[in-house]
Write a protein that binds this DNA or RNA. Structure first.
Lengths: 196, 196
DNA sequence: CTTAAAGTAGACCAGTCAGTCTATTGTTTT
DNA sequence: AAAACAATAGACTGACTGGTCTACTTTAAG
């Protein structure tokens, strides 16, 4: 009843299709087809499409959190350099997916938070966990004197996360990482600075 | 064949439903039901759902551009105050819609730009027109000495628009305008400042 | 008064949706 | 070996999708 190769295959295919097309536009049959699993198995592992969607979110969040920790809590690297690497990784991914996919959590947040409170809560939690990772890194930067303490790390983390998500969205419609570059440039030039 | 009350009713209802539920989740029948128009009329005015969606975008953009001009090109008001008013209006709207709707263009950009190039192009154009309105206002601010000229107005406009869109997205999943407040606060405190 | 076109009206179509059902196969446990 | 359960398999259902079709009504032109 727990973990299983078939279940994993379903979640993997689902994450891929949902990333590309969105939740509503991705039919269960399409997921089944891409991984060659019959419908009976799907409803053996998941009670509904919503249940499946939540599992996709959960798994993506868990996997993404690992890379987030590796990037933002690497104490061998100066805090602002960690942030730079995070942005660079995001830009690379955006380029790799031909500017079509973006951020799964951001996509679903936009599509589903007005549609289902269950999804909204789940996505909100993911965002909040991400913000905490940023807070941790920003606190390091403040105590080490790299940035001023005129703003709380929490507010700064919110600023960075929302700005970055917005830049990703804009990059999708523009089919260019230019908005992401602009965001990063101005952020490091005027916000993440030491002097008051 | 041109403008008509029925056509307008369809677009109005469509804009409302699509704002709330998204494009894919909004069926044509639902639109027809909310404004009491039969299907025959719909396909008399629009050749397809995509055609309809584009008309909804076009009309929203035209109407929104008016308020944008009124806010950002009001020469009787200092440039930064114009921006403040723009953000205040956005916050008020977000509150009025119970944090559920957000920005129609942003929503559709997220949902459709990976799905249809036609939509992506249309939405991209709208964003670019908006950016130009910001550029105009920021140039005023620079020439009047309110903000430094270390960054091009174009890059700044991109930064503001993407940051704001991201804040709206985050406000939807959080059901609070807090991210929008954080964005505005830090923007005026550290980015839109005169000194180098 | 006639005729053509614009617009209204909704039954209808093939296809797809999420979800159900029964039957069968694999794998343990006893 | 047998019973119990997990998992596979896919045909099937009713509701709904975007879109088509024909019939009817209104408006305007000649």
């Amino acid at each position: 009843m727990k973990n299983n190769a078939t279940r994993d295959k379903l979640i993997d295919s689902g994450a891929q299709l949902i990333s590309q097309q969105g939740y509503n536009a991705t039919g269960i049959n399409a997921v089944l087809k891409t991984c060659g699993v019959p419908k009976g198995s799907f409803y053996h592992y998941f009670s509904s499409k919503e249940d499946f969607g939540l599992a996709v979110i959960e798994r993506f969040a868990a996997s993404y959190d690992e890379t987030l920790v590796a990037l933002l809590e690497d104490n061998d690297t100066p805090p602002l350099e960690r942030l730079r690497r995070y942005f660079a990784a995001g830009r690379e991914y955006m380029h790799a997916c031909d500017h079509a996919t973006g951020c799964l959590i951001g996509n679903l947040g936009q599509e589903l938070s007005g549609q289902s409170d269950t999804f909204r809560d789940a996505l909100n939690l993911v965002f909040q966990r991400w913000e905490q990772r940023f807070v941790h890194c920003l606190k390091d930067a403040q105590t080490q004197g790299y940035i001023a303490i005129r703003t709380t790390p929490e507010a700064l983390a919110s600023f960075i996360l929302t700005g970055w998500e917005g830049a990703i969205l804009r990059a999708k419609t523009l089919k260019s990482v230019e908005p992401m570059v602009h965001f990063e440039t101005i952020l490091f030039q005027q916000v993440l600075v030491p002097s008051a």
